[in-house]
Amino acid sequence: MDALKSAGRALIRSPSLAKQSWGGGGRHRKLPENWTDTRETLLEGMLFSLKYLGMTLVEQPKGEELSAAAIKRIVATAKASGKKLQKVTLKVSPRGIILTDNLTNQLIENVSIYRISYCTADKMHDKVFAYIAQSQHNQSLECHAFLCTKRKMAQAVTLTVAQAFKVAFEFWQVSKEEKEKRDKASQEGGDVLGARQDCTPPLKSLVATGNLLDLEETAKAPLSTVSANTTNMDEVPRPQALSGSSVVWELDDGLDEAFSRLAQSRTNPQVLDTGLTAQDMHYAQCLSPVDWDKPDSSGTEQDDLFSF
């Protein structure tokens, strides 16, 4: 819950932080000083300027060897085509990944977070970031790969997607708890209302004896509580940590079903599988986004697919 609360507080303090972009060759504004600060901008989305290598189908939802083989196929196909790589912007948030063309600003792909089953910074092609997700059109699994400016960037994108998945799962947990509370309150309110109706004398007997209905007592009954809980029953509950912020979080049926399955089948359902080692994760978390744009010590960066 700490990640969720800190993310909400950060967004309320400075929503404009989320509009910064990394990996864009110096076009961005001043960047936060450390990885923790940038992680807090996830709610509205972190932007990464990358190059799209392509996509291939895979048979399993996750796995280092599986993704490595898929990336190898994608890279080989991209090299064989001889075409310049498409420059894209990857927007990562707890909602998922939005992929747009840098030149036309046209939407290429919009992947809900619950469809993503794996992401990684490839070991062999260490400047490549990739994720595996279920197609929104059918049940097939797709591996999408992107060329980053350097290994640090690939690791940073991988960690960002993993963190977005974690925050999304926490949102789901909060929403589920809130819905259970509202359902319980609604049920209790309905029981109270039913009890009051059972003990209320029939209207005919009131008229016969000349008694008047006590409207004041009726007004004191917990009807307002019942209506408050039943009027918006169809509205999706939102985490309290975000009250007053500009973010509107809505959970669709697909996300609810997917996270429910994860909660039942996995020990740590909030953790998205990645190909990063503990050492890689520690190294990337210690980086400032400013470091992502620094040239690798191995030599001059080449803006070309064939540089790796």
Rank of each mutant, 00 (worst) to 15 (best):
K30Y: 10
L305K: 09
E301H: 06
S227Y: 01
P32R: 09
L193S: 05
V157M: 00
N211H: 05
L159C: 15
Q285V: 02
A80K: 11
P32V: 15
A3I: 09
V157N: 10
S243R: 11
R29Q: 04
F48C: 12
G63Y: 10
L272F: 00
A241M: 00
L255H: 11
S288Y: 01
S243Y: 04
A154I: 00
S16E: 10
R39Y: 15
F165E: 01
S49E: 07
P94L: 12
R196N: 06
V161Y: 04
S245G: 12
A162R: 07
Q20K: 04
P295R: 05
V248F: 11
D252W: 11
D273V: 08
R29D: 06
G299C: 07
V290W: 07
I97P: 09
S186I: 09
T120H: 03
Q155T: 05
A168M: 03
K72S: 14
I108A: 04
R13T: 13
E250Y: 04
D296P: 00
S186W: 03
G8K: 12
D183P: 05
K87W: 13
G190N: 10
S243Q: 06
N105D: 10
L4G: 02
N211P: 06
S117A: 09
S298F: 09
A219P: 10
K127S: 04
D234S: 09
A80T: 14
R266T: 02
Q197S: 11
E177F: 05
S117Y: 06
S205L: 12
D191C: 13
I71A: 08
A284G: 10
T160M: 09
A70M: 10
A219K: 08
A162I: 06
E257A: 00
S21Q: 08
G45Y: 07
W172V: 01
G26T: 10
R73W: 13
S14W: 01
A162V: 14
T300W: 05
E217Y: 13
R238V: 05
K87T: 14
A208M: 06
E40P: 14
M153I: 05
Q106C: 01
D2L: 06
E40L: 09
D252L: 04
W172R: 01
T200A: 07
G210M: 02
C148G: 15
L262E: 02
P202V: 06
K123F: 08
E188S: 12
A76E: 10
Q163R: 05
T89I: 14
T231Y: 00
V290L: 04
A145S: 13
M55Q: 10
G63K: 03
V92D: 09
G189Y: 04
M55T: 13
E170P: 02
A80Q: 02
V290T: 05
Q240E: 05
V161Q: 00
S186N: 07
G82M: 04
F165G: 01
V161N: 02
S307Y: 01
A168P: 01
M233G: 12
P222W: 05
S243A: 05
L66K: 10
D101P: 15
A284V: 14
A278L: 08
M55G: 12
P202C: 01
L107V: 10
A80G: 13
